[in-house]
Write a protein that binds this DNA or RNA. Structure first.
Length: 387
RNA sequence: GCGGCUAUAGUUCAGUGGUUAGAACGUCGGCUUGUGGUGCCGAAUGUCGAGGGUUCGACUCCCUCUAGCCGCC
């Protein structure tokens, strides 16, 4: 039996909608997964994620949770679900991206990465094996292989080396992952009908903007065999057109019977454009990070609540949004909260942004089911660029 | 009433007899894509309290006035 079940229910061009079943929740795709790096989606209570927002899966991060509170503490407390009380699905990032984003604090070798903790400077070592062990302790539904993410503008030789190491690390990840599953060290194991109850493991494609390397990375990754396939190394400094070009080239060649996950992307426009090219899963910090700094995503484009023009504006953030923030609070009030440094500003704007992202994905799915995704995409992009 | 101190950006304050007077905070605007964002980048704003004098040149030195603060009768 498999750890996850994935069924496409409708297709429109390359865009697909489907049902992903994990041991903990049923997820309709295309799906946006809110990011909960430290075991919390910043500023958003689980009650809201479960009820109003109805998020079926969120992210957790190996690197950050390993540093604090530590994998052993979480294992002792029964895993990340039990520790945090989030009972729906979790996808955990492997720490590979932190190798890239914290690169001034690292030393990279074939064996793995030596870091200094950004919290207290302690020397730490992360490798495919260690990452799998931590993710088993966290007990997430979807585990990511430990990869290396090259800069978006890396030249072909650097990218090739990075991709080859990622492929070797992918195999090591899979081997250690299988051992851990067999040793029953996954804290999230669940007896469930028609599924193995185990964790799923996703491979990651690299290759930056080089199409031939993307193809090579795909072949190497599929050869190992995973439950799902992610596209990594995009939106990391390259031109936006490069991202679309890579997606258009690689997504349709990826296995059709497994979910395709575009890591770390993106803006609402990016999500729609990636679905159009065949992507099923997304995660991004934008709704919560931007929410914390006063930037709201709306169906009529982006809006910065700090702007003086909102000081007397009694309209909601987005008058076409039915979220609980838009039903109740005005731009003027939200601006006041932001300007006075009240934490509620970040909470409310993050909430709205997540509502907007999740609602957009709902509309994307509906339009694919109706065979009207092309129309939706045109109208959506047009409306977003109005402002 | 007498003596002293102070007066410079919205605020708190630096500053020098010599090009376009600075900082911090605030204000205004931008950035943020597998979360080091309580961050990062940029911009605007001054009759240097008022009036007079000395000087080639005064925000700076001198005089008068005004306002505030402190002390003494």
């Amino acid at each position: 039996m498999k750890p996850i079940e994935w069924k496409v229910t409708a297709q429109d061009g390359e865009a697909r909608t489907g049902i992903l079943r994990t041991r903990r929740s049923i997820i309709e795709t295309p799906v946006f997964m809110p990011v909960g790096t430290q075991g919390t989606v910043k500023g958003v209570r689980f009650e809201w994620l479960e009820n109003e927002l109805d998020a079926r899966i969120i992210l957790g991060n190996t690197y950050h949770l390993w540093i604090r509170p530590g994998a052993e503490i979480i294992r002792e407390l029964g895993g990340l679900h039990k520790f945090s009380t989030w009972n729906r699905s979790l996808l955990t990032d492997s720490g590979g991206f932190q190798v890239f984003s914290l690169s001034d604090l690292r030393k990279l070798t074939e064996e793995g990465v030596e870091f200094r903790s950004h919290v207290d400077g302690t020397k730490m070592f992360l490798s495919p094996e260690v990452s799998m062990e931590i993710q088993a302790a966290l007990g997430s539904e979807i585990v990511m292989v430990f990869d290396e993410c090259a800069p978006g503008n890396a030249d072909i030789e650097v990218t090739r080396k990075s991709l080859e190491m990622t492929a070797r690390w992918a195999l090591r990840s899979k081997n250690r992952f299988d051992e851990l599953q067999n040793q029953k060290l996954d804290t999230g194991f669940l007896e469930i009908e028609n599924l193995s109850g185990r964790q799923a493991l996703f491979g990651i494609l690299q290759g930056a903007g080089h199409l031939e390397l993307r193809k090579e990375s795909l072949e190497k990754t599929v050869e190992i065999g995973f439950d799902g396939y992610a596209i990594g190394g995009l939106s990391v400094g390259e031109e936006k057109s490069v991202m679309y070009e890579v997606l258009e080239f690689i997504a349709p060649q990826m296995p059709k019977d497994a979910p395709r996950y575009l890591m770390g992307v993106g803006t609402p426009e990016d999500l729609v454009e990636a679905v159009y090219r065949g992507v099923d899963m997304f995660d991004c910090v934008l709704p919560t990070r931007n929410g914390r700094t006063g930037a709201a995503f709306t169906s009529h484009g982006k809006l910065n609540i700090r702007n003086a023009k909102f000081a007397k504006d009694s309209e909601p953030l987005d008058f076409d949004c039915a979220c609980s923030v838009c039903l109740r609070y005005s731009r003027a009030y939200l601006r006041h909260l932001y300007q006075t440094g009240e934490m509620l500003a970040a909470i409310l704007i993050s909430h709205h942004n997540l509502a907007f992202f999740l609602d957009t994905m709902r509309k994307v799915r509906d339009s694919i089911k109706l065979g009207k995704f092309g129309e939706f995409r045109r109208d959506f992009l047009n409306e977003m660029s109005n402002n």
